[in-house]
Computed example of a mutant assay.
Amino acid sequence: MTYCVGLRLNRGLLFMSDTRTNAGVDNISTFRKMQTWQGEGRFLTLLSSGNLATTQAVVSHLEERTKAAEDRSPSILEQPSMFQAALTVGECLRETIARQKGEGQKAASTTPFNATLILGGQIEPGPPRLFLIYPEGNFIEASDDTPFFQIGETKYGRPILVRAYDPDMSFEAAIKLLLVSFDSTIKANLSVGLPLDLLTYEADSYAPGEERRIEADDPYFAQVSEGWGEALKNALESLPDFVLD
């Protein structure tokens, strides 16, 4: 399992993903789930959740198309808009899943090859845009009503996003918000874990902003985690006790 978030702000876009791919007492591994592409007047970020073989294949195909000859197009760096880029990624995802389902005697009925993606970025002259791409290749776009997307283990970290998100918030405040969301998820589910990958994108910059890996010993993450836990306890104690008859 995994947990990834793409957040749309008035200032730009914010992305965060964990790196855990397997979980168990003696079976923990990590893999980067955030990929970026940059060209003149364009910058794109892809977050992935689901079958690792599927997501690796999709990223590899997209990466090859950005570097190969014309007959290997379309490349997401050649698309005229983020909408067209989302179509290209969706088609690649759908084709990859269909191809892998056809391999092996029991693949179609017993092995889950599905994956879900978040694609965000900006292609000149359009604004920054954010998309959630489903295994079938279709997608929806973030809006004022749905300003962020989550994939993977979403339920534990969603309440804080719903309650505290503000489109006018700074990157610094939004990063703090996402760290609380990830901390809640990590504490509730072993299949999500540190390190975390973080990326900010400033509108009209066409380049990555803050790009960082947050390790397990990161002092700021520890401060946020401990502070949030203490704040929850204090908030609970400040509420009136239930009165028994």
Rank of each mutant, 00 (worst) to 15 (best):
G24V: 04
T146Q: 15
F83Q: 14
Y165L: 06
P219L: 04
F31G: 12
R72A: 14
F171T: 06
T19C: 12
N10H: 12
L62S: 03
Q56M: 08
G229S: 09
A86M: 00
E141C: 11
F113D: 03
P219C: 08
S191R: 12
A98N: 09
R11W: 05
F113V: 05
D71C: 15
P195E: 03
V58H: 04
F171V: 06
M82V: 06
G39C: 03
V25S: 13
I123A: 00
V192L: 01
S170R: 10
F242K: 14
T110K: 15
E91K: 14
R163Y: 13
A207P: 04
T55E: 02
V162L: 15
E153W: 06
K155N: 15
E78S: 09
S205I: 02
K33R: 04
R65C: 02
D218M: 01
L236W: 15
G39N: 01
L47D: 05
L199H: 02
G102I: 03
K67P: 08
L44H: 01
T2M: 01
E64R: 14
R32D: 13
Y165C: 04
A203N: 13
L190C: 14
I214E: 06
V192N: 01
Y156Q: 08
L52D: 07
G227C: 03
L132A: 13
P208Q: 01
G193V: 00
A188D: 11
R94N: 08
R212V: 09
S225A: 10
T19H: 08
E141S: 09
P112H: 06
K187N: 09
K187V: 08
F148L: 08
Y134P: 12
K33D: 02
T200V: 02
I140R: 14
F171S: 06
P147M: 02
G227A: 05
G39M: 00
E202F: 05
L244N: 13
A68V: 04
Y3P: 11
G227H: 05
A164K: 15
S49N: 07
T54M: 05
G6E: 02
Q56N: 13
E202Q: 12
I97T: 02
D241F: 10
R11I: 02
P208R: 03
T19G: 09
N234G: 14
E103K: 14
A68D: 07
V180M: 11
F113T: 08
W37A: 00
L44T: 00
